[in-house]
Design a protein around this nucleic acid. Structure first.
Length: 521
RNA sequence: GGGGCAUUCGUCUAGCGGCCAAGGACACCGCCCUCUCAAGGCGGAGAUCACCGGUUCGAAUCCGGUAUGCCCUACCA
């Protein structure tokens, strides 16, 4: 089967799905699966980058293969400080361990330069002396005339004399690939199926830049071959570059790997996910208190599924189930709400001890300075079950728990404080103005009850306050609601008497007194 | 402008010729539980399977075309 329309043949029949078995075939063929994650440190790794890493890792682990990490740092200008470290730490955090590397392309420059030289010598590449200005002007003109933009191949057939002349002028040339002028390049993407490109739609792209660094295309092919990569799992956006890569493999005489183009992760507007879609870097999710198990589970489901009902997967389960056949072909919109829900599920799966250990640093960081440090772990442990059930992120725990810790009392409006009582008064057909005095009386009676309570356990408190409510002629909703706002400053909280018990007598008394102060005379 | 890929509930998806008057999940709504909020349970609404033709006894599933979207079209990756 001639896949390039240009001379080289493939020997691996895996390229033809009709005549080979699907996945397991790889290993039976006697080939060890070798895949790589090759991010570029031009920004902090986002959910799309790491999803690619996850799929590569899952594929490697599923087949007992090798997962390689390679940093493609060939763009000196766009390199972002700290990005490399963020990539490594994100991978570690997610539990995606690599077997080889990290390799850095910036440390392998001679390899690419040698490869470019080889291609020039073989006639598959040539030196180009065109200035950036000329190139820009050419492109502008092409766009203006509605012509397909691309290099006009001015230097493709320079004579030796012309080359010498430019060199003598001190111009440093770039190396461009000599794309075959005709023919087709076909390949069988393991997700997309057969794809065909006409070579004439490809332009003579640059292999080696004037600064001596390779472009992505060159470095990628040289390294993938050098590292024995068998399967390239990468984002869909690379599909259009694949014919160039295949042509390069052909020019070198290398056997190309299998290609697997993964569906892209999209923002709400269905365009390629980027910073403008909000928090997308995995570092940010980590800081916000998303669990790595939730992240991997969620990412795996963006473009992959097992069946029509299973959606909770541990990493181990993903490894055993992962298969390229179950990859989807269409882009997936990143849905934060589903991630939040899933993180909540994983948060609830934690033991209380684990939850407390994870939540503690967030509270230490986020609670107001007035709360003494260190945060009392035993105290946290008591309220933890209630927080765990309600939290969607660890960051969100502070908001759920702060009133337990505040020493100076809680801040709230009289509106919520009196809301329930006013409703109650109206229900009883009395003057709404009576709500405030009624509330004051209820608060006073409650304070007395708390002072006298011998047993401060939730059950005993509930019994006490239920009968107190009855004695006051108040419904549970109104009475407990009043107490809830007085004690927590909010209308929604963990169960009242558990809250009361955890807060303790002193805090309860202080807050009840403060509430009475708030009420209009 | 050119090229490539894609198109099932708002979103993630199941579906690979009859089992689908399309199933699950998130979000949404209602009910139950209940001192509130959660969690949980139950139920509901939500997709003429982009459109038009064709193949077939039969199509979401196969084949054309159209439309729309996305990606690529850099001395970025």
């Amino acid at each position: 089967m001639n896949l390039s329309g240009w001379g080289w043949e493939r020997t691996n029949s895996l390229h033809n799905p009709q005549v080979c078995p699907p996945w397991g075939g790889v290993i039976e063929w006697g080939n060890m699966v070798r895949v790589r994650f090759a991010p570029s440190p031009t920004g902090f790794p986002h959910i799309g980058n790491l999803r690619t890493a996850l799929f590569n890792w899952l594929f490697a682990r599923h087949h007992g293969g090798v997962f390689i990490l390679r940093i493609e740092d060939t763009d000196v200008a766009r390199k972002v400080e700290g990005a490399e470290e963020a990539i490594l730490s994100s991978l570690r955090w997610l539990g995606l361990d690599w077997d080889e590397g990290p390799f850095f392309q910036s440390e392998r420059l001679p390899l690419y330069q040698q490869a470019a030289k080889e291609l020039v010598e073989k006639g598959h590449a040539y030196h180009c002396f065109c200035s950036t200005e000329r190139l820009d002007e050419m492109r502008r003109e092409q766009v203006r005339r509605k012509l397909p933009p691309g290099y006009d191949r001015l230097c493709r057939n320079l004579s030796a004399a012309q080359r010498e002349e430019s060199l003598a002028k001190g111009i440093t040339p770039v190396v461009r690939f000599r794309i075959p002028l005709e023919g087709q390049t076909r390949f069988n993407d393991l997700v997309k199926g057969p794809v065909t490109f006409n070579n004439r739609t490809l332009d003579d792209f640059i292999l080696l830049k004037a600064d001596g660094f390779p472009t992505y295309h060159l470095a990628n092919i040289v390294d993938d071959h050098d590292m024995g990569i068998t399967h390239v799992l990468r984002a869909d956006e690379w599909l259009s570059s694949t014919p160039r890569h295949l042509l390069l493999y052909g020019a070198f005489g290398y056997q190309p790997p299998e290609f697997v183009h993964l569906p892209m992760i999209l923002g709400e507007d269905r365009s390629k996910l980027s910073k403008r879609h909000g928090a997308v870097s995995v570092t940010e999710f980590r800081e916000q208190g998303y669990l790595p198990q939730a992240m991997t589970n969620f990412m795996a489901l963006l473009g992959w599924s097992l069946d029509d009902r299973t959606e909770m997967f541990t990493l181990e389960e993903l490894v055993s189930h992962f298969s390229i056949e179950r990859l989807s072909r269409t882009g997936a919109v990143f849905n934060l709400e589903k991630l939040q829900w899933m993180n909540g599920v994983y948060l609830r799966q934690l033991s209380v001890e684990e939850f407390v250990d994870l939540a503690l640093p967030y509270l230490e960081r986020n609670l107001p300075p007035s709360v003494p440090r260190p945060i009392d772990r035993g105290y946290l442990l008591r309220m933890a079950p209630f927080l765990q059930e309600r939290a969607r992120t660890l960051e969100g725990v502070t908001e759920l728990a702060d009133f337990f810790f505040l020493l100076t009392g809680v801040d709230y409006e009289t509106g919520p404080l009196l809301g329930g009582m006013q409703k109650e008064v109206r229900k009883q057909g009395k003057d709404p103005a009576g709500a405030a005095p009624l509330a004051r009386g209820a608060l006073e009676a409650s304070a007395t009850a708390i002072e006298r309570a011998a047993d401060f356990e939730p059950e005993a408190l509930e019994a006490t306050f239920r009968s107190l409510g009855e004695g006051l002629g108040l419904g549970a909703g109104a009475f407990f609601g009043l107490l809830r706002v007085a004690l927590t400053g909010r209308t929604a909280s963990p169960p009242l008497f558990h809250t009361m018990s955890i807060l303790g007598r002193d805090k309860c008394l202080a807050r009840l007194a403060a509430a009475q102060q708030k009420l209009p005379a």
